[in-house]
Every structure is written in structure tokens, then in C-alpha cells.
Amino acid sequence: MRLFYSETKNVRRICFMLLTAAMATFLFTGCGNPGSQSSSPGASAGETTLEKVRREGSVTIGFANEKPYAYQTAQGELTGEAVEVARAVLKNLGIDEMKGVLTEFGSLIPGLQAQRFDMVTAGMFITPERAGDVSFANPEYSIGQAIAVKKGNPLDLHSYEDIAGHETALVAVPGGAIEYDYLTAVGVAKDRIVTVPDMPSALAALQAGRVDVITATGPSLQSTLDTANNPDFERVTDFEQPVIDGKSVRGYGATAFRKEDGDFVEAFNKELKNLQDSGELLKILQEFGFTEEELPGDMTLEELIK
């Protein structure tokens, strides 16, 4: 009995010591600098994402390989409207290197929140719903929607309403893109919307006869068609812009940041305005098929999400 009691006592002592150590570890790690929880990977304790990327001179961006907004060339170069606008802004902030993380459009916001990258430069439209998940910079461009069909427009489609009114028309749209919401809002049945990873996949679906029409923003659709250079497809030139809840769906695109990166957004907006005031923003946009009509004007984030 004595031996049993002694072993039990030792076991209890050991368990108590282990429990004490575990509690100490928990308290030590759990009571650190609260601000460090909002820092991005590689940041020092209490350091914001902006401070980190300025110190490193490098930033990691998320993009979805969609022309003309953000894509990789055959030579592996990262470029596009959103990329080059961000590159010019970041250079003025002392950040010269950009590293890209390719992901599907629908994974951009989750990837940003999961800290896979520091910001998203993918020509993403500002919407109140997205603004609930991320912090947008002010808009850098404004554009409308467009559709493409097989040559001759066999189903005579000229609007989203025409797609909704047709009994069998199937439409392809990249997963997570705002066009999905517009299509359902005008009455297109969800089972007639085919989601695809990107615009090249949408065009492949049209070519294979899996869909009858594809849709995207005007510059993105035009860039896809120009790259394919296939006379079997055509853009519907008299397309009627959707009107949702009495408002035009003309969209405004911007760079997205994590919610906690307010200082980054503020610094980005300041340099973006300088680009616009100097005329440099228009020059960058024009390189990717945009015109003066696609400039954002005086539109601000607050006006778009109110």
C-alpha cells in the first residue's frame, strides 16, 4: 500500500507540474500585443502590413489571371490594369517589388483574409457586400458589362433580360464575379448559369457548345476575344446595360485590403489621387484598352457602398 501511495503521489506531482507549464504557455502566448494579431506574415510584433512591406520593399498581391485587369504573360511577367496602377502607387510608397499569387476569382477575398497575400489587385468591383469583408481603396476605373456569342448571334441575345426570357439559353460567368448577381437579379435561373474559373474557360465553354453566351466587363470580354482572335465569336455591340433596382450596374473597380489595414488604404488612396490628378492614371488605363470614359471621376468608396 505504501508503494502504491508513493507512485500515485509522484504521478499527481508530475501532472500538476505539466498543467502549470501548459497554463503558463497559454497565458504567455495569449496575452501578447493585441495589435500583432492584425499584422501580416513576416511582420514584427505590432507592425502593420504597410510598415512591413515598406521595410521589406516588397508586397505580395492576389490576382485571378483575367485580362486586362491582372494576368501573367507567356514570359511569366505580372501585369494588367490593376497591377500596373498598384505598381505605380506602391513605387511612390517606396515599395518596388510585387510578387503575385494566382488564384480563382472567388478565392481572392478568402485568400486575403487568410493572409495568403497583402492586397488584391484584380480589377474587383466595389459592392456593399464585398465591402463588408474587405477594405477597398477608392475606385481606379469605371466600366459596364458586355456579352459575347457565336457569330451571327443565333439566339438573338442583346441583354441580360433576353437571356432570362429565353427558355434554354445558358450563360458562363467566372465564379465569384459580380455578373452572377446581376444575372440572377434580372431573372436568369441559377441552373442556367455556368460558373467557370476564368474568362478563357468561359470562351472554351462557348466554343464547345456548353453555353450560348458569356459575359464579363467590357474590357475583360474584349481582351478575351482579342486574345482568341477567333472569327467564330462576336461581341454584341448593341448590348443593353442591366438596370438593377432602378440603378445602372456600371461598376467601379478598386484594390482590396484587409479590414485592419486602414493605414495602407489611406496611403494608397493618397497616391492614387496624385496619379489621377497628374494624368498618369489615364495613361496606364489606356495601355489596357480603357478610355477617358472609364476614369472613375470623383466617385468615392463611401458613395458606392452607402
Rank of each mutant, 00 (worst) to 15 (best):
V120K: 06
Q115G: 09
N138V: 08
S135I: 09
G144Y: 00
V134Q: 07
L112T: 13
A114K: 07
I147W: 07
T127Y: 00
P139M: 00
S142V: 04
D118G: 12
V134A: 12
R130I: 13
H158A: 11
A122M: 11
N153Y: 13
K151F: 12
P154G: 05
G132R: 11
D118H: 14
H158M: 05
P128R: 02
F117H: 03
T127V: 00
M119G: 03
V149A: 12
P128L: 12
G123E: 02
H158W: 01
A122C: 13
F125T: 13
R130S: 07
F125E: 13
V149N: 11
Q145L: 03
S142T: 05
I147T: 01
A148P: 04
D156S: 14
K151T: 14
T127W: 01
F117S: 05
A131L: 00
F136I: 09
S159D: 05
I143C: 13
A148L: 10
T121I: 15
G132H: 03
L157Y: 10
P128I: 08
L155V: 11
K150Q: 12
R130A: 13
P110R: 04
R116E: 09
Q145I: 02
S135K: 15
A137Y: 02
P128M: 07
A146L: 04
Y141H: 13
A114Q: 10
T121D: 12
A114W: 03
L157H: 09
Q113I: 15
M124G: 04
K150N: 12
P154D: 08
V120R: 07
F117A: 07
E129T: 12
P110Y: 01
P128D: 00
R116Y: 07
P128E: 00
Q113K: 15
D133K: 15
G144E: 06
S159I: 06
G144D: 02
D156E: 14
M124Q: 11
G144C: 05
V149H: 11
F117M: 11
S135D: 08
A131I: 01
P139L: 01
N153A: 06
A148H: 06
N153W: 10
V134Y: 09
I126T: 00
P139S: 05
V134L: 03
H158N: 13
A148Q: 06
Q115Y: 03
Q145S: 14
Y141T: 14
F125C: 01
G132K: 11
V149R: 09
P110G: 00
S142C: 08
F125M: 11
Q145C: 07
P139Q: 06
G111L: 03
D133T: 02
A122Q: 02
V134C: 08
L155K: 15
Q113W: 02
Q115I: 05
A114F: 03
T127F: 00
V134G: 09
K150H: 06
G111D: 00
A137C: 10
S142I: 06
A114M: 09
I126E: 00
A122R: 01
N138Q: 12
Q145G: 05
P110C: 01
V120T: 06
F125Y: 08
F136P: 07
G123C: 02
G123V: 01
A114G: 08
